[in-house]
């Protein structure tokens, strides 16, 4: 090892010891001192940088000497540091494990999105496609083509927002049924999620909009039994296999026979309606140019809010649209 290197090492050692004698008390200055010796451009780093310029045989010894210096300096520095810095809890033996963990930010998906995703997953797992369509549509696609005659009390079943005389905010996603059938040939197997609107007074049980999933299956030889089987599978997947359900006759202009599905609420001791369904009315097929002698099908529609309310025990539909952090935090 060259003498000059030895001297340099010794010089660094001395200057370090001197610096320690006047060890600063300010945290920042301690950091500055630390980096001037141990930092990327500190004195020790400079020593190591000189290694490149010394001969091959001298290198091992030089390395050892610098390492020894580094070890000594580090030890002395830490001793001093401990004296001057109030140790934080992680560096003492007196670690306060009762401190809370570091707060973590965690976002959340809206319960409607979560429920909708669950519904989508169930149906895609049994071979359904998913389609989407317009929220603003003409009267024809929302009503007339779905066999709601213009002057029929069936139109009162859904309070409608009108944009123009023949343009409405869709009252159900069934309008997409018509678009689908107009644009494609059977067989079809789709669910259609989306926002729908009803011009009803806002209360704990109804809001001016909600999210619906409507399904349409068109094929040869489709029976009411197929509809029942599909929905029983769905309801059990959502509410558990022990759920009690019933198909109750009802009326929708675009299905015949039509039914509503109720599930039994043990807690309240009553049936709760969860969805509407039925066999596609032949008039709907005629309206889109499908031959009702050849094609049959079923359709059903369910409200995502309704399912989410039952799943999570939410009793006021308005909570979904208030965006209250105390609500959103729970999902």
């Amino acid at each position: 090892m060259t003498n000059s290197l030895k001297e340099t090492i010794e010089a660094v050692r001395k200057s370090f010891l001197t610096a320690l004698d006047s060890f600063p008390s300010d945290t920042h200055e301690i950091e500055v001192l630390k980096s001037s010796y141990f930092g990327r451009k500190g004195e020790l780093a400079k020593l190591y940088a000189q290694m490149g310029s010394i001969s091959h045989e001298d290198r091992p010894n030089a390395g050892k000497a610098i390492n020894a210096l580094k070890e000594e300096c580090s030890r002395l520095f830490e001793e001093q540091e401990k004296k001057y810095i109030t140790p934080d809890s992680t560096q003492t033996d007196q670690l306060d494990y009762t401190l809370p963990g570091e707060a973590q930010r965690l976002g959340s998906k809206h319960p409607i999105s979560k429920t909708l995703q669950e519904v989508k997953d169930i149906f895609t797992s049994v071979g359904f496609h998913i389609a989407y369509g317009p929220e603003v549509d003409d009267d024809y696609h929302n009503f007339t083509a779905l066999n709601f005659p213009e002057h029929h009390p069936a139109r009162d079943m859904q309070d409608t927002f009108f944009v123009q005389k023949d343009v409405v905010l869709r009252t159900h996603t069934s309008n997409v049924q018509i678009h689908l059938m107009e644009n494609s040939e059977p067989p079809l197997r789709y669910i259609v999620p989306g926002r729908v609107y009803r011009n009803e007074a806002i209360s704990f049980k109804s809001y001016c909009l909600f999210h619906q999933v409507e399904a349409l299956v068109v094929d040869k030889n489709i029976s009411f039994g197929d509809l029942k089987g599909t929905l029983e599978y769905f309801v059990k997947r959502v509410f558990g296999s022990s759920v009690t359900m019933r198909f109750r006759p009802s009326f929708f202009p675009f299905t015949e026979p039509s039914a509503e599905v109720d599930i039994w609420d043990e807690k309240r001791g009553q049936w709760l309606e969860i969805l509407g369904c039925g066999m596609v009315d032949p008039a709907v097929f005629e309206n889109v140019g499908y031959d009702p002698k050849v094609w049959h099908g079923y359709a059903f529609g369910l409200g995502i809010e309704r399912i989410a309310m039952l799943k999570y025990g939410i009793s006021d539909i308005r909570l979904f649209f208030q965006n209250d952090k105390r609500f959103l935090d729970q999902f």
Binding site: L106, G107, K109, H110, S113, E135, C208, L209, F321, K325
Partner: peptide
């Protein structure tokens, strides 16, 4: 939501 955002649903009207 992984970035820490909470998803909202607001009235269209």
């Amino acid at each position: 939501s992984a970035f820490g955002y909470q998803e909202c649903q607001s009235n269209t009207l």
